[in-house]
Simulated assay, not measured.
Amino acid sequence: MASIYQARKDGGWTAQVNLGGKRRSKTFPKQADAKRWARQQEATIDTKGARVRTVDDTRLNDLIQCYLTECIDVTAISRSKESTIRHISELLGRARLSDLTVARYQDFAKERTAEGAGSTTIGQDLTYIHTILKTAGPLLDAPYESALGNYHAARRILSMSGKVTRSEERDRRPSDSELLQLREQWAKRRRVVPMWDITLFAISTAMRLSEITRIRWDDLDEDNRTVVIRDRKHPRSKKGNDQTVPLLCGPAVIGGETVDPIALIQRQVRTDAEIFPYDSGTISTSFTRGVAACGIEGLRFHDLRHDGVSRLFEAGYDIPQVSLVSGHESWSNLKRYTNLRPESLHRD
């Protein structure tokens, strides 16, 4: 049985294998490389004619660990996603990849249903499993193909039976009156977090909350009215996807006033490297509480991004121009964020 541990001095990963009384060890810069070497040693070295361990003993937990340490920046994912993956590990992680049959996936769905998870939530759980298999499987050189094929078969069966469904596309946009209610609510007392400024900025830029709290003063170009969003979310590139986006004045007009993102930035106190140096969880919680205090139903902070994208189209911008602002790769993804109001199509 191999032992994988992190070296204290250089931060590398050491793999140690004990086969037939002979101990072998080797240090690698990445944990995935250490695991791969250990499996190769155990699969190729025989002890009295029998292999001690083979690649077929790889478990889902091995892939989950690799996914969280090698495939993504775990500090950048939401607490909800990380918590879900940890729970998947508890329920299914000890299963060998060869044991991930169609029936095992169905049993997992039943377990989640018994815990109170809905069909959409279970569908998201399975999507995470799919991503882990596809990304960490090849990285660990693990036999994941059968588990992946069984996944697709199980998902089809669960979808046909209605036990797994996709999340519904949201079309919720805040009205001007709802936004002004929020402004009044937040104005009632002095707040550390400038919720109204952040709300206006989210609508006028169509940025995600995580992007808003990440942009820096150094990335702002006031002369060209642009800002660089570092490591912007991308379906394939998790790192290095930096995008320069325009800060447009005009598409968002709220309560008869034109929203200018540059003016909102200039109102912020320059005490930190980030323009909005606040915890995204705190902002999200404050927004939810403000919505509840105003008696507004079904409005989330992320709906502001939907609103921002829709306002751009209503202002006459075309698909490539809106994509440059929102960061969407394709129209199929962008249209999910587009909820035009019929009255906005009238032209003077």
Score class of each variant (00 low, 15 high):
residue 3 S to D: 12
residue 4 I to L: 11
residue 6 Q to S: 10
residue 7 A to F: 04
residue 12 G to A: 14
residue 13 W to D: 05
residue 18 N to S: 10
residue 24 R to D: 13
residue 25 S to Q: 14
residue 25 S to H: 11
residue 29 P to A: 11
residue 33 D to Y: 03
residue 34 A to I: 10
residue 35 K to P: 01
residue 38 A to R: 01
residue 43 A to E: 11
residue 53 R to D: 14
residue 55 V to P: 00
residue 55 V to E: 06
residue 56 D to L: 06
residue 56 D to F: 05
residue 58 T to G: 01
residue 62 D to Y: 05
residue 65 Q to I: 09
residue 68 L to W: 05
residue 72 I to S: 02
residue 74 V to R: 13
residue 77 I to Q: 12
residue 79 R to K: 12
residue 81 K to V: 14
residue 81 K to M: 14
residue 85 I to T: 03
residue 91 L to Q: 07
residue 94 R to D: 15
residue 95 A to D: 04
residue 101 T to W: 01
residue 103 A to G: 01
residue 103 A to I: 13
residue 105 Y to G: 00
residue 109 A to N: 03
residue 118 G to P: 00
residue 120 T to L: 00
residue 129 I to P: 03
residue 130 H to S: 15
residue 130 H to C: 09
residue 134 K to L: 12
residue 138 P to E: 04
residue 138 P to G: 04
residue 139 L to F: 06
residue 141 D to G: 13
residue 142 A to G: 03
residue 143 P to A: 09
residue 143 P to V: 08
residue 147 A to F: 01
residue 147 A to W: 00
residue 148 L to V: 07
residue 155 R to C: 10
residue 158 L to T: 01
residue 160 M to N: 09
residue 160 M to F: 05
residue 162 G to I: 06
residue 163 K to R: 15
residue 163 K to L: 14
residue 165 T to H: 08
residue 165 T to F: 04
residue 166 R to F: 10
residue 166 R to A: 15
residue 171 D to Y: 11
residue 173 R to K: 06
residue 173 R to Y: 08
residue 173 R to M: 07
residue 181 Q to M: 15
residue 183 R to S: 09
residue 188 K to H: 08
residue 190 R to Y: 11
residue 190 R to K: 14
residue 192 V to N: 11
residue 193 V to I: 15
residue 198 I to N: 01
residue 202 A to R: 00
residue 203 I to T: 08
residue 203 I to M: 10
residue 204 S to P: 01
residue 204 S to R: 02
residue 207 M to Q: 09
residue 207 M to G: 02
residue 208 R to W: 04
residue 210 S to G: 12
residue 210 S to Q: 10
residue 212 I to E: 03
residue 212 I to T: 03
residue 215 I to P: 00
residue 215 I to Y: 06
residue 223 D to F: 09
residue 225 R to G: 05
residue 226 T to Q: 11
residue 229 I to G: 02
residue 229 I to V: 15
residue 229 I to Q: 00
residue 236 R to G: 04
residue 237 S to K: 13
residue 239 K to P: 02
residue 242 D to V: 05
residue 245 V to M: 12
residue 246 P to D: 06
residue 246 P to W: 07
residue 248 L to V: 10
residue 249 C to A: 14
residue 250 G to F: 10
residue 251 P to L: 11
residue 259 V to F: 09
residue 259 V to N: 09
residue 260 D to S: 08
residue 261 P to K: 12
residue 267 R to P: 00
residue 273 A to P: 01
residue 274 E to N: 14
residue 275 I to W: 00
residue 277 P to I: 13
residue 284 S to I: 03
residue 284 S to P: 02
residue 285 T to C: 04
residue 285 T to P: 00
residue 287 F to D: 08
residue 289 R to W: 07
residue 293 A to I: 06
residue 293 A to P: 05
residue 295 G to D: 06
residue 299 L to C: 08
residue 301 F to C: 02
residue 305 R to M: 09
residue 306 H to L: 13
residue 309 V to R: 03
residue 310 S to H: 09
residue 311 R to K: 14
residue 313 F to K: 01
residue 315 A to W: 05
residue 318 D to T: 15
residue 319 I to H: 01
residue 326 S to G: 06
residue 327 G to S: 07
residue 329 E to G: 09
residue 329 E to C: 11
residue 330 S to V: 04
residue 330 S to I: 07
residue 337 Y to E: 02
residue 337 Y to Q: 06
residue 338 T to D: 07
residue 340 L to G: 08
residue 347 R to V: 15
